[in-house]
Write a protein that binds this DNA or RNA. Structure first.
Lengths: 105, 105
DNA sequence: TTCGTACTCAACCGCAAGGTTGAATATTGG
DNA sequence: CCAATATTCAACCTTGCGGTTGAGTACGAA
């Protein structure tokens, strides 16, 4: 768990963090606002936000006492990029396999 | 870490498991074959394969002494499905925001 | 049946993750 | 300045993960 890709996948492996990401698609939110949705402490949510920030999924901005969390969608491209690369390779392999099987002997 | 989505994200958070998935796009492989690529014990690789199987990313078939691992690409759709849903929402939000900002006052 | 090969099971270890509570640190309002 | 609000820091606990080693199982070859 060192590279950006690992951090991104790991960040989204937690249901609460995925839900936070989902909510942030609607609007930027403060820590307290986010925490009101879950049955965990404010500090736990604060930790989740740090994990999301370290993964590049969230950026944060201070405004007075409040810290607004903002979704950064670029990391989504990193994830889908990795997935699509290997999905494509798997599909190519199957195409080649079909070719061989259909080749008249 | 209970649902399929969490298991899939968590499975891909580990670099060795991602590399195993990458190799399986080329061909089905046995445990020993896979283990030869990494500096960990055969048992550790066996565990990684169980995690990948539990996540639905890999299926396994016994053939004599050997157990072949086979990549299952459907889980990729589950992942990209989730990601694309929320990327789309985030983009829609930005479109609406742009509309408002461009609206003459 | 016996031996080697391929793999899994089981017990253990170190460490990090996700949670808690309590104290500390801004920042704003009165 | 003082008090309340918003958030983080720090210490701690429990659980799960990724790794190990050693023993057990299952199959094939001779």
């Amino acid at each position: 768990m060192d590279d950006e890709l690992s951090r991104a996948f790991a960040a989204l492996a937690d249901p609460i963090r995925r839900d936070i990401v989902a909510r942030l698609t609607a609007d930027d939110m403060t820590v307290t606002e986010i925490a009101s949705s879950y049955d965990v402490s404010l500090q736990a949510v604060s930790k989740h936000l740090r994990v999301l920030e370290a993964a590049g999924l969230v950026s944060r901005r201070r405004d007075g006492q409040q810290r607004w969390a903002h979704l950064e969608v670029d990391v989504f491209d990193l994830l889908t990029g990795w997935i699509d690369t290997y999905r494509r390779r798997a599909e190519l392999r199957h195409q080649r396999l079909d070719e061989i099987l259909r080749r008249p002997t």
